[in-house]
Structures are given as C-alpha cells and as structure tokens.
Simulated assay, not measured.
Amino acid sequence: MTTKPLRIAVFASGSGSNFQAIVNAVQEGRLDARIELLVCDRPQAEVVERAQKAGVPAHTFKPKDYASREAYEQEILALLQEKGVELVVLAGYMRIITSVLVDAYWGRMINIHPSLLPSFPGLHAVRQALEHGVKITGVTVHLVDGGLDSGPVLAQRAVNVEPDDTEQSLSEKIHPIEHVLYPQVIQAIAEGAIDLKQAAQPKTKDGMIVQ
C-alpha cells in the first residue's frame, strides 16, 4: 500500500453493519482510509442508504442484467481502477467472486467470516457451529483466493458458545466483534503492520498470521 489514506472499496449485499463500522472508524479517526466506492448487487439494500448518508459513492447492479458474472465484474474492475482503489473489502457480499476480480486484486482483497476458519466456511457459519456443538467459535479476516473462505488468515477473534445460545443470540455476540476487528485489520494494513504481500505467499497453517 503506497498512499495515505488507504483507498478502499467495500462490497456488501445486505444491511451493511460492517460497512457502517468501517465508516464510523474513518469518521472517528481510528482508520486512515478513504472509502472510494460501495459495490452492491442489491440496489434496494439498506447498505446503499448507509452509503448515501455517509457520502460514499455507490455502484449498484442487478446480476441478472448481465450475461455472466465475469461481465459485471469487468465493469466493477474498471470502476475500481478508475478510482485508484488499493484494497477491496468484502463485507457481507453474497456473490461468488470470479478470477476477473481475484486475479486483479490478488493479495489486496479481504473478507470477514463469522467462524474460526478453516472451520465452518460458506453460508450459515453460525448455524453450522451450533449444529456441531462447538464450545468456541469466532470471527476471521482472511485474504480472498477464489475458494470458499479458503484464503490465508490475517486475524481471528474467539467467541464463547453458551449452552443456551441460539443462532440469533450467537450472531448478536459475533457482530460486535466483527465491527471492532475489521477496521482494526484494515488500519493494520494501512500502517504496514500486516504485510499483505507476505500474507499472500503460500503458507503452512503454523505460518498464518493470527492475532
């Protein structure tokens, strides 16, 4: 990363609580970044309203209007390059990312996931944790490599699972952790405390950066 503040784009599909956490961190001076763009595949999503209130430009689209995933990602890639985006931040973006974006932003695209990866990748991670009866789950921030939540881990935080937890109650415990951790990781990237070039190299499990 070469510029200050760090130029980022956030991809989201739903309510945008992690997007809002990033906005708040920027506004409060805890995150030395500039949100150049919100990308959203659901034009009516609440996150679009959040972006408007924050003064963040939003690119919305309907995937069905395009011939392929690659077609709309080419359009998105052109926007990212036009705005000089250095880091792509996936925050509840519910679309599969193809090689169009993964290759262009390899080592510069991150995601947050509500489990301690590699456990419980994919959809319904909180439900998976409960169904498996684990005592501890958590939050992971990782690089995106085109697989299913399989990229190198950058940071993790643990969350205790209580016997009476439901999917809703456990999610409510996980969300505040996400809202703290994601801006912290982005700031660490901006400061160079997390070296994405190093993290993007093939690693053994013991070599992963876990904070």
Rank of each mutant, 00 (worst) to 15 (best):
I174V: 05
G133H: 03
P63K: 14
L101K: 08
I35Y: 02
N24V: 10
G92F: 10
R69K: 12
I8Y: 07
A54K: 02
N18P: 12
Q20R: 11
H59P: 08
K4Y: 13
G92L: 09
V161K: 00
G151H: 09
E86C: 04
L196N: 02
A9V: 11
A51T: 03
A199C: 09
T137K: 00
V56L: 04
D195C: 06
I110S: 04
E86G: 12
R7H: 14
A67M: 09
L77T: 12
K197Y: 12
V39E: 00
A188I: 06
I186Q: 01
Q27W: 03
A158D: 14
G192H: 03
I194R: 03
A158I: 14
E28P: 08
A129Q: 02
Y182S: 02
D165G: 05
G192N: 06
G192V: 11
H113I: 14
P5C: 01
G122E: 08
V180L: 08
E73A: 00
T137W: 02
G146R: 06
T3F: 00
I8D: 09
A158N: 12
I194L: 10
R108C: 06
G192C: 05
A78P: 06
Y105Q: 02
T60C: 11
V126W: 00
P5L: 00
A190K: 11
I186N: 01
L148R: 13
I8H: 02
R42D: 11
P163L: 04
N160V: 15
V185D: 00
E75V: 15
F120D: 04
L117V: 13
A158T: 15
P57Q: 09
A78V: 14
L143V: 13
G147S: 08
E131T: 06
V134Y: 06
T3N: 02
G192F: 07
A33V: 12
V23L: 04
K203P: 11
V56F: 03
E75A: 14
L148V: 15
S15H: 13
I209T: 14
L38N: 05
K53L: 13
K64A: 15
M208F: 15
F11V: 06
A67E: 15
A67D: 14
S115Q: 12
E191Q: 13
A67I: 13
F11C: 02
P176L: 04
A188Q: 12
R7E: 10
P152E: 13
L79F: 05
G151D: 06
K83Y: 11
S171N: 13
D41R: 07
V102H: 04
A129Y: 02
A200K: 10
Q44L: 12
V180M: 05
I194Y: 00
V88S: 00
R34E: 15
E178N: 01
T140D: 09
L116G: 06
T3M: 05
P202T: 07
Q81H: 08
E28F: 01
A21Q: 07
L31C: 09
Q44M: 09
L148G: 01
V141T: 07
P202C: 03
L123C: 04
G107I: 08
H59M: 10
